[in-house]
């Protein structure tokens, strides 16, 4: 989609008259809006990744109340809980996401995401979680 957009822009620049240029520009804007934010960024945003991979358990609001929780023996963490979330360092949260709950002595129900998310994307998610809890790095950890 990105490629298509760039090609259109080039064509627009070299070939078309002012009026056509404006129309194409408008079309591109509408097109981008439709597929936003995917078409605007080269890779997925932390919000995209949180929506697809985390919301199913941690919920649309990040409060641990996802569609899957009814029969889960361990309930997902409430990511808006500043007290609980500030008790963890960024490095621990990174590890929990990359290697799963077991890696930090928590439940197997928190999955490892190393095979789908790059380290950069996981770092992005750690920052995203900090915006959900409106809290910072656990002191002294």
């Amino acid at each position: 989609m990105n490629k298509l957009k760039i090609r259109l822009k080039k064509a627009d620049f070299y070939v078309f008259s002012g009026c056509e240029r404006m129309i194409i520009g408008l079309k591109i804007a509408v097109f981008s809006l439709f597929f936003a934010p995917g078409a605007l960024f080269a890779s997925d945003t932390a919000a995209d990744n949180y929506a697809l991979y985390c919301v199913q358990c941690h919920g649309l609001r990040g409060d641990g109340k996802g569609i899957n929780i009814r029969d889960m023996s361990v309930q997902p963490r409430d990511h808006t809980d500043a007290k609980a979330m500030s008790g963890r360092s960024d490095a621990e949260i990174f590890k929990a996401i990359k290697e799963g709950g077991l890696a930090i002595d928590k439940s197997v129900q928190m999955p490892p995401w190393a095979e789908v998310l790059s380290d950069a994307e996981i770092t992005g998610l750690v920052s995203y979680l900090r915006t959900l809890c409106k809290c910072s790095n656990g002191a002294g950890k």
Partner: peptide, 21 residues
């Protein structure tokens, strides 16, 4: 399936038991 691997979180193993994503 459930205890060791945590698969039940996302999958129904009965029409009304398990996860739904």
């Amino acid at each position: 399936f459930d205890k060791f691997s945590g698969c039940l979180a996302c999958h129904l193993i009965e029409p009304e038991y398990g996860g739904v994503s």
